[in-house]
Design a protein around this nucleic acid. Structure first.
Lengths: 207, 207, 207, 207
DNA sequence: ACATGCGGGACTGCCCGTTCAT
DNA sequence: ATGAACGGGCAGTCCCGCATGT
């Protein structure tokens, strides 16, 4: 459940301009999530969000190309990439991912995790948002493929690598969905999912 | 790449009425695919499709709830279910799926496979259609979970079962995407993907 | 200053539906012209017009594809065509046009003429509307070419015919513009313009 | 097909500044025409043009107030004025125009004429551009009226003068359109049109 | 019962006025 | 002080659900 759309061209370079941009962006997102919680996603119009954030409807779309992006945009993938890179190079992909996730989640406060869970629940409950997950899965897979390729001694485009990335991503989606529904520790959910994946898919007498 | 939306209330039962419904439905779908090929998906409006199929725009939506459904609606999942049910109960899930797919594809003519591939390429190239794939993946997973649960001696809701279903589905998506891009035999692509999945995810020294 | 866009597909066949369509169409046009007169053309938004006519903005555009069309749509050309057809076949084009115009205008009440003049003034004063006149001139020319071709014993596409049609149309535009600015009798303005045209363009010693 | 918008405040006077302005202007125009040819006029956005010319969208609009002006801005009318002024004062308007056009076109290389023809074709094929022609026709008429008034011994506002200017302009538009469609020599097209105009509109037995 | 038409909301593109950065 | 960027606003299109009339 993560993305990294950077609508604004200029990524950094502070100044009053940048600051204001960030503020506007956050205001829109905050008001949007508040309204979604109050009235539901579909019942909330972009115009209402714009009004609540005190910007014009046009500006809303300048910051978020679609209504869906208000909910879907985040950049937790970047965190994972860092985590993966700091794992030893000879660790197996699945193991590396497990540890990287654990490390990454360690840096996110429980309060923020609850916020994320709220967003996740929202996403899974709204068809239009759920649909957009596919795209996220794909970019997550691509990211994983790029990061894991060296560990597998192969190119990211090779079937082996894509297959591993796809399976691990599938496991994470299952884990996040379980977590969104049942609560508890996200790290534990992901751990369970990854372990189960490897146990159940063992070719011969693994159980 | 499969779904099973049944827009019409009446499920079977022939008669002149049903026949006409089928004809209209097929006319819409055929004209739509033709127009998509000629002008692109986004550039084609539902109104144009309706005009080409000689129905009113409103009627278009009676047959297909959304523009996307014109491309996405099919019922190959039913075929797979049949295939899975005719596999011996003690066969491993992955193996059962492989054989069921092979059997199912054996019943589809090469010409029809090319048509399917065309649709698959269209889907993967259009963001809006690609997004809808998530939903298909989910129903595919649910179907697989239901079918495979007995083989795993577990309930479809258990993590083990969902995990296996998710991983196998992920493999099939990777396979179909590869096939859409590179061509060749779909059965071979799926075979490769499933075998690779199990080799690469073996917990310890499986290779 | 005339056009003939028929947005609705169904041209005739009365019934409550058709009647309501006509009423809505006229309501939109009336409210639009009122608002244009009160606040100016550019200062009036389509949304305001829609609100005044008690329809949704979308409906506004269903009846008039553009804001300009609210002002520009009419069907006086049809009247002229009738008039031309009832002139003797051996009358010179210019003469036939003069008489046809006179006859046509005879059927339009002075009150309606004043309304038309109001619209003409509006059109000439708003750049966006003025621009659209070109298109009207062209369709007027095409109509004239089609009607006058037989009198000239030639095809509508021949230069001779197109040239006559273009010159006569130019004369009418000059006349209408003069009338819009100065008032008086439209028929007289057109008469003057046509007579002047032929006097001034005589090849040699015509004056 | 000519205009004379002078977007820049500074009218002439060279210097590094002016040079850069010209370069930018030409870059924008060149990139725009290239993109229009590749993707079509409507499908090309101002943003794309700005990006291709490596300026900001805002800068684009500083140089060309509207997208249409990129195509429509030129200053061939000035050439015609010069040409008309160097004709003897007792020459008939139509004749003076013919000769002035011939002289003016003599100064334009065939290559440049082809470029102009390309632009003309673009203009006639795009409704939005075609619409703007009306405005050009009007300024062309005003220019002709001003230049020809002395020859007719009258004021530019008199009907006689306006009528002649309008008819001659109509002839030129017909000629340019024919040239745009069929190719060949523009001078010849204009010649034909003017001669035809005078032959066909002769009051009595001119043919 | 079936089709048609209307409402309405998401989204884009053009263009302008103002505000900030250099 | 010149020049870019940013927010705003409006026209217009498309998809689609729901009420309406045939």
């Amino acid at each position: 459940v993560s993305a990294s759309a950077d609508t604004s061209g200029s990524t950094g370079r502070s100044g009053l301009r940048e600051l204001k941009r960030r503020r506007t962006r956050e205001a829109i997102q905050a008001e949007a999530l508040r309204l979604f919680a109050e009235q539901g996603y579909e019942a909330t119009t972009c115009e209402q969000i714009a009004a609540a954030a005190e910007v014009s409807p046009a500006t809303f779309f300048r910051y978020f190309p679609t209504k869906e992006d208000v909910v879907l945009t985040d950049d937790y993938d970047a965190l994972l990439v860092e985590g993966l890179r700091s794992r030893p190079a000879d660790e197996r992909p699945l193991e590396a991912l497990r540890r990287a996730v654990a490390a990454g989640l360690g840096m996110v406060t429980p309060a923020e995790q609850e916020t994320i869970r709220g967003r996740a629940r929202l996403i899974f409950s709204v068809p239009a948002l759920r649909a957009r997950l596919y795209e996220h899965q794909r970019s997550h897979e691509a990211m994983l493929a790029a990061e894991l390729a060296p560990r597998l001694g192969a190119d990211p485009q090779e079937l082996r690598v894509r297959m591993v990335a796809a399976a691990l991503t599938a496991a994470m989606v299952v884990a996040v969905e379980g977590w969104a529904a049942d609560g508890g520790s996200l790290a534990a959910h992901i751990d369970d999912a990854l372990v189960t994946l490897e146990q159940e898919l063992a070719p011969v007498r693994s159980r």
